[in-house]
Design a protein around this nucleic acid. Sequence first.
DNA 1: AAGGCTGTCAACCGCACTTGC
DNA 2: AGCAAGTGCGGTTGACAGCCT
Length: 310
Amino acid sequence: MEIHISGSANGSGAPVIGEELGAGDVRKGPWTDEEDELLINYVRAHGEGRWNSVAHFAAGLKRTGKSCRLRWLNYLRPDVRRGNITLQEQLMILDLHSRWGNRWSKIAKYLPGRTDNEIKNYWRTRVQKQAKQLKCDVNSQQFRDAMRYEWIPRMMERIRASSGATLGQHPSPMDSMNHWTNIQVLQSGNHMRSQSHDPTVMPEMSSMTSDSSDFQHSPVSDFSEYYYKPPSNVHTQTQQGPTANDVNGCSGLTNVVDQFDMDINHTFEESNSLWLLGGGDQSLLSDDFWNEENIGFLQQQLSDEDICSF
DNA sequence: AAGGCTGTCAACCGCACTTGC
DNA sequence: AGCAAGTGCGGTTGACAGCCT
């Protein structure tokens, strides 16, 4: 058995009692500065990927390939952003999660510099906490409705008030959000809330593939639930809920929504660098939507039976 | 001051998927 | 087609800092 005393892997400077080395002399636990340096040097020399070769090429780095990959992607990568999740990012996370569910890596692709791990942690520590505080399940229809019809518009309003002047001349995610919200409001009155859901069940998502599903709609978002358009080679029998036609008799809506999906993806990509990296009001950088004022407001909204009465 | 509690976040684990043979 | 190795992803855990009593 070998005990390691690691350095300040988390920047705290506090010594961390190391852990036992496994059968293969593999180290676990917090990374030391020396290990970080070894890994950085390895990536400089060999590039990303081939993580299982790290232990071979980086002498002294007794980590598994998986551990090295994780350390690099979540911490050492030069473009990793640190610090508070901005209001815009929070909004983006709420929106994308309502569409895709716990597809953290997919969501992370729309938040430059943020890792799936960071977003996942944000969701668990902030959003789920607030859902608990509001006494509703994070996957419940109630919570999703509150998020969609109250929280997101409210966040948009705040962002618009703070950054409208600087964002006004460019397409922004806010424009897409408005587009999206408007469509949903259009639909909300007559159908969506009348559907029965099991609020505790997160719909199965295993049928989705990673990249080809970029423009698919996850059943997690009830908006997409009704307008899900599976790939032509996929049978639709497992798809729950009525089709767009069933719901509103509007055969063109699926196309409208598909077009919107392309819009929002395009817009996000185009504008991310602008509005995330300084295009907006910098005062929002450390803002947090989950403050007392907003939570109080939301509690009030949730206490009303018909929270989307428009 | 000390112990307990809570929130945050880095890291690990297990499983699924992909790729090469 | 089947297998193994490599990689990616999401869930979970554990360490630590800060707050509370």
